[in-house]
């Protein structure tokens, strides 16, 4: 089987799974880890949103976070670049080790974290500016050296958008299609040269053709970046990811919904031979 599977089909890929050792029942820690997540709990005020997350997210691969609505996938991915800091009531406990540093150590500046870890959101959110200025926004903030034209071109090429927009770089990004806008947002995140790309349901507002393009793009990008993607679309997780974490939700006192990880393993294993019956029920479509 080739490294890149056909993205338009809905078969479970054997793809990258073969490159990995056989998955174990417990979360395993591959040699190369980009995020080492240890005992992470997230509270919103008094509400515990996710609990007990222990994951070793691999470097240079795509990790998918799947699970039913409200299970804390988005909450968790927002911990990885400290976007939860923007919600005043949010509190993150535990450790997330990134390049040997705890992202939640007191001396870490969240702004610096976000410069290294890019993020793409559910709904494309281009700035109301030209395509060029959208891409150049991040590099300008960082004061990146070199020709801005080159930086913009390179980012748009990496975002697989250059050929479509090279003749209208100065037009407003709001004039693009939804799929193009989302690829612009990906290119914008890549322009600052991060080493991780977080994607929070990046295709949920897109049609299948645009989705296919973005999935192709993700497979190309994982050569250079580590990618973490939240998705509701199990076929998507199966098509693109190397590792998959299945989240679900438990109802606590006062109907509080708290998310936790049921199973984390190679995508292939999660979709063909999961250890936990809850995972199997979910991926085979019996629940959720």
């Amino acid at each position: 089987m080739p490294e890149k599977t056909e993205t338009a089909t809905e078969h479970v890929p054997a793809a990258a799974a073969s490159a990995l050792p056989a998955a174990h029942a417990k979360p395993k820690r591959p040699a190369q880890t980009i995020f080492d997540v240890r005992d992470v709990d997230v509270h919103y005020g008094t509400h515990k949103a996710v609990t007990g997350i222990n994951l070793a997210l691999p470097h240079g691969q795509i990790t998918a976070l799947i699970g039913p609505s409200g299970c804390g996938k988005s909450t968790f991915i927002r911990c990885l670049n400290r976007m939860n800091d923007l919600i005043p009531s949010a509190r993150v406990d535990g450790q997330i080790i990134y390049h040997g540093q705890d992202l939640y150590a007191p001396d870490i500046d969240p702004v610096q974290v976000r410069k290294r870890i890019g993020m793409v959101f559910q709904k494309p959110n281009p700035f109301p500016k030209s395509i060029y200025d959208n891409i150049a926004f991040g590099p300008r903030l960082l004061g990146m050296k070199g020709s801005m034209d080159d930086i913009v071109e390179q980012a748009l090429r990496r975002g697989a958008l250059w050929d479509e927009v090279k003749d209208r770089l100065k037009t407003n990004a709001f004039g693009m299609s939804g799929g193009q806008q989302q690829r612009l947002c990906i290119a914008r995140a890549l322009a600052t040269d991060p080493d991780v790309l977080l994607m929070d349901e990046p295709c949920s507002a897109l049609d299948p053709i645009s989705t296919g393009r973005i999935e192709d793009l993700m497979l190309e990008l994982k050569e250079t970046y580590s990618i973490v993607i939240v998705t509701h679309n199990m076929q998507q997780a199966a098509r693109v990811s190397d590792m998959t974490a299945f989240f679900t939700v438990q109802l606590g006192d006062n109907e509080q919904r708290t998310g936790y990880v049921v199973e984390y393993a190679a995508t292939d294993k999660i979709f063909t031979n999961p250890d936990d019956p809850r995972t199997e029920e979910y991926v085979t479509g019996k629940v959720g």
């Binding site: 976007m83 976000r114 959101f121 926004f137 914008r188």
Partner: peptide, 14 residues
């Protein structure tokens, strides 16, 4: 919209 603020902050803007 808040998504514009998020987009900007996620790029490392203060």
């Amino acid at each position: 919209p808040p998504s514009i603020r998020e987009g900007s902050l996620a790029l490392g803007a203060t």
